[in-house]
Design a protein around this nucleic acid. Structure first.
Lengths: 254, 254
DNA sequence: ATGTCTTTGTGAACGCGTGCACAAAGATGG
DNA sequence: CCATCTTTGTGCACGCGTTCACAAAGACAT
């Protein structure tokens, strides 16, 4: 994954652990797929496999929501879809603004996953006057000057920042001042926000660096003198439960 | 943040906790900024503030790398940049391929953060024959048919998947079979890979859903009968260490 | 009804990560 | 050379999250 909250004060909202909340969307996706195939019920084992987690974890996660399963049978797919959707707040409409319509911002605007689950792109905002009025993904880009008005008029509480790093904090401040209380940050910066405002960040560069770390680790593990050596075509081992951690032998030659 | 590894088998690579590894890029970024301003040394307190973490945590993180600080003074910026870069494996060149050159793939190809830290876009690959040959970000797109050859010729070990969900697993399988051992997945799917292959995922939809959860929580907390109510312009409280968790009172009316 | 079989829900143990608080280290000034 | 002051490095305790393993619950067959 490429996300992570900036910091977790361990404030377990209402009793649902943060770690569980982060997995609910995963379950929801798997359940939606089952629903589309008209599968009526599913066991924790099956669903866990589909979501790529441990079945015990899944059951414990669901137990925080309530007792929605039937012993000996499993979970009712439709019912669970509804319960999770409700818990995540997806039964209501969430207008979202995207600030910074460059390559990434445009890609996000075009991203289908937005509309699918109650999220609606209410507006696109960019600082470049030349962009103003231009339609991106069918939505005309508006100028940053109108940011506050746009937020208020549309009742936006979720903002997406896709600006260059230098502009991110300033945009963030304006969004927050205008009433936004949740921010998804794609700019490579640490955002400073008041209490009560949630920030989640998506950082490509960080993800790659983490991968590089493990990659380097693998390289020194086996045959220290390897060139760009490809272990290649390792015996395919199906397992829905692998982790990026790689289960490296962890022997370390010295 | 918008990332998260699929699962963490707690395999603490060589003794550096996974949580620490995930923060190293953050420190590196802050240090690089200091370096550019020619700041010679920095204390754990200052650096922690810049990176948005707790100073004790930062010191503990660094202690896993070795004793690189000087008591009473702090850390030498340049030296630390080098040490972290080396630990992350950024002192070497990492050729990367991006598969799926749609809106997102193109945005990633254009993303500057790639080239900056030892990562080099070695090739762009797409399944659409019409795309073949077209330059994106100055790099000609190649067809999926040549995927294996491209991987091997360039010694690629890191692959980025930006295809539609339906194609992701298949692309992943081919990448892995060709020798890729680290994958950054932007497709909304759980990828199944053999042991020894790292997968990190970036999922916009999941991030938004997590934000929506907390947003909904905030909404019901205060004034249950609120419309799209904006608490707006809350007293600005500077704190580099806030978390999206929001410190909600957690009372629940019933 | 009763028994068997499946699957959930959860108590308990364990391990990782975080943060506190302090001793040790070293710089700096007299 | 000694005293003082700053800042690191870390032992320790605590809490969250994960996993195991099992009792309870219910379906289903007889």
């Amino acid at each position: 994954m490429a996300t992570g909250r900036t910091h977790r004060p361990a404030t377990r909202s209402r009793g649902i652990p943060e770690a569980t909340v982060a997995r609910l969307p995963l379950y929801l996706r798997a359940l939606t797929a089952l629903s589309e195939r008209s599968v009526p019920t599913v066991s924790s084992e099956e669903l866990a496999a589909a979501a790529g987690v441990n079945s015990a974890k899944l059951r414990k996660d669901f137990s925080y929501l309530g007792s929605y399963g039937t012993r000996g049978v499993g979970y009712d797919v439709e019912y669970l879809v509804y319960q999770i959707s409700r818990e995540l707040g997806l039964t209501q409409d969430w207008p979202v603004v995207i600030v910074g319509i460059g390559n990434l911002g445009a890609a996000l605007a075009n991203y289908g996953g937005f509309a699918s689950r109650g999220f609606r792109v209410a507006a696109l905002i960019d600082a470049d006057p030349a962009m103003a009025g231009k339609p991106v993904a069918g939505i005309p880009v508006q100028h940053t000057d109108d940011l506050e008005k746009i937020i208020e008029d549309n009742g936006v509480s979720i903002g997406v920042i896709a600006t260059p790093a230098g502009a991110a904090q300033q945009v963030c401040d304006r969004l927050v001042a205008a009433g936004v209380t949740s921010i998804l940050n794609f700019a490579p910066t640490v955002l400073s926000v008041p209490d009560g405002v949630d920030v989640r960040k998506v950082d490509l560069s960080i993800e790659l660096q983490i991968l590089a770390f493990h990659e380097q680790r693998k390289a020194v593990e086996e045959g220290a003198g390897a060139d760009g050596a490809h272990p290649a075509a390792a015996p395919r081992k199906e397992s829905a439960e692998q982790g990026p951690d790689g289960d490296v032998p962890a022997v370390m030659p010295a």
